[in-house]
Amino acid sequence: MAATATGIYHRSYRSELALRHTQAEYARLTLAAAVVVAVPFVATPYWQTVANQIGIAVVGAIGLNILTGYTGQISLGQGGFLAVGAYTSAILVERLGAPTLVGVVAAILMTAAVGAFFGLPALRLKGLYLAIATLASQFIILYAVRNWEFVTGGVQALVVGTPTLFGFELNTDFRWYWVILACAAAATVAGTNLFRTGLGRAFMAIRDQDIAAEAVGVNTVTYKVLAFAVSSGFVGLAGALTAHWTTIVTWERFTLDVSILYLAMIIVGGLGSVSGSIYGAVFMIVVPAWITQVAQDLRGQLSFLARELPAIQLGVFGLIIILFLIFEPRGLARIWHRMKDYVRLWPFRY
């Protein structure tokens, strides 16, 4: 990290505060943009679907990282918050005839409010105890979804019509890709900006030393609740996108495994890193998709493999998380940093 900053001198605070400084950084950004734009033109339908899943996961993972990675408040309620976003938007659009955009914005606000409410235990609890409290929120929300039939449709799936945007009917994965990409890009920019300003800095202060944070004037009550709200706002957007893209909302999509999958994303990608959230989302969606594909290709010869697929996926997941926790707790983002430094400083390694 230090190495990338040496040798660059700034003439104003403003230029120093810019996100990118070197040509290499601009070149990498351009390359990444080119790849992202090229994906839907070269991907098979299967991978096109996977790409859309990744985009939504990026939004959700950035949201969770704001709370867990940056503010230090662990949450196992991600699945529940995704459900709040998905059902809010679906119900508003499908039952009350609201425009999709209104539904999505309402989903963001509603999930932020619900997240803030379920964040209240964080004012008293830390670490594992908070994990268990947020776990409770996961179960409470899903219980409400399953039993509040009159509003949510209960265990029955809620079907949503395909929306139109600027005259285009969003009825293909290819069209959806651009909508999801725009949302993921917006989430990335917003997440990055947040931690360039005093607001995000207050979140990180709470993570590092909450007593000192109070002593410099950060009201930890307000800011913890705010962190839950902001984080959940992103998650609500991810939930709403899921609802309208898949056009079917069921509670089974938002179970505890989803919460754990998202935690795995930010651990593998890098806690407290926006780019890490992206790497983690890509990794944790692509690996199982790839395992599935391989297993399907092998179905003829090795049928037991296909049968054991869910178990294999879980095993691989668990292994990956454990390996990262042991060998690189700062995740893929850190590995990527080290690679950049290595290349930049080569052949002077030390």
Binding site: G198, A205, V216
Partner: peptide, 12 residues
């Protein structure tokens, strides 16, 4: 900069 927290406005 966190020492400046109380002198800043923090709007979302």
């Amino acid at each position: 900069l966190l020492g400046r927290h109380v002198h800043m406005r923090h709007r979302l």
